[in-house]
Amino acid sequence: MSPKAQDRTLGFLRVTTVRGQAQTLAPDHDHLVLGLHSEGRATLVREGNAEPCRPGDLFVCAGPFLLHESEDFTLHLVRLPRRALALTDRQVQALTGRAPSADGPVAPLLGALLRELAAGRSERAARHLASSVAELVGLLVDTDPGPQDHGEDREALVRRVRAHVDAHLWDRRLTPASVAAAQHISVRYLHKLFEGQDSTIGRWIQHRRLEEARRELARAGRNDITVSAVARRWGFASATHFSRSFRAAYGISPSDWRDGRTRPSG
């Protein structure tokens, strides 16, 4: 079923509310777009990065994007001309790299304003709200964590990321996008964090899964456990993928490692 869209023009803003069932949306625009995913769950795809978008999450796009809606949804899109925001290219890049989120000092206020705009308030009141929207969008740049963070805060964030990965190794849906969303940072910034860790976030996830699987296979008395069971338990898509990755990392197959470590001596 095609989505239902309602449009309002408020000064320099154009507000569109879209409602529908599970489907993929590819909005056509030539402005900076502020989105409020009011109801439903979706996956936002920008510049090849896929990020979860939950009820209440805000996001900003400056180019083509897709929304894969997984259930009934309500979406508010606000088109803003860049000249009305007085933002530099670097600030726009920071906004569009911001992970969809409803948290922080600015996002809740901005989300509430967008709902008011979409609710069809009087023209005069809506125009006042429109000016406030532009100001708050600019404030998002200053409140979102970015590559300028250094020192202890950055190291603490890396520790939180590693702890999150360890707690979700079993989940096949664990990806750089899901990790970034859980920490309320952009995927771009997450990759930036790991540039100084002699790894990438994707390789770190795989390394930790292999490490835990290797330990389980070597555990005494576990010679009856199947390789496919261990692969499933530690989040690998298939036993074949697990075996190939294990051999590449350790130079031995998972079954040979298990048999050699658990076979009784003598």
Rank of each mutant, 00 (worst) to 15 (best):
P27N: 01
N49V: 11
D28M: 04
H29R: 01
R46L: 13
G40T: 13
C53N: 04
R41Q: 14
E51D: 05
T43C: 10
T24Y: 08
V18P: 03
H37K: 11
L34N: 00
G35Y: 00
R41L: 11
L44A: 07
H37C: 10
A42F: 14
G20K: 05
A42V: 10
V45M: 10
E51K: 05
C53I: 08
A50D: 11
T17R: 09
A42N: 12
H29C: 02
D30I: 00
R41F: 09
H31D: 02
V45L: 14
L32M: 04
V45A: 11
Q23N: 09
G40Q: 10
G35H: 02
T17E: 07
E39S: 15
V18I: 15
H29L: 01
E39H: 15
L25E: 04
G20T: 05
Q23I: 06
T16D: 04
E51W: 09
T43E: 13
L32V: 03
G20M: 06
E47Y: 12
A22L: 13
T43F: 09
V45S: 07
L25F: 05
N49T: 12
P52Y: 09
L36F: 12
R46M: 14
R46S: 09
G40F: 13
L32E: 01
D28C: 04
V15A: 07
T17A: 06
H31G: 01
Q23Y: 06
R19V: 08
V33A: 05
H31W: 00
V18F: 05
A22M: 07
L34E: 00
T24G: 05
A22Q: 10
H31T: 00
Q23F: 06
V18Q: 03
L25M: 03
L34H: 02
R46I: 14
V33M: 03
H29V: 00
L25K: 02
P27F: 02
A50L: 09
L44T: 11
R46F: 07
T17K: 08
V15E: 03
Q21K: 12
D30P: 00
R46G: 07
L34I: 03
G48A: 08
L34V: 02
V45E: 13
G35N: 01
E51T: 14
L44S: 10
E47F: 07
L25T: 04
T17C: 04
G35Q: 01
A50C: 09
L36A: 09
L25Q: 02
S38Q: 15
V15P: 02
D28R: 03
A42Y: 14
R19Y: 04
T24K: 11
V15Y: 03
A50S: 15
C53Y: 06
H37R: 14
H29T: 00
A50E: 11
V45Y: 05
G20S: 06
V15C: 08
L25D: 04
H31K: 02
V18C: 09
H37L: 14
A22R: 10
G35V: 03
Q23H: 08
T24D: 13
S38H: 15
Q23C: 13
H31A: 01
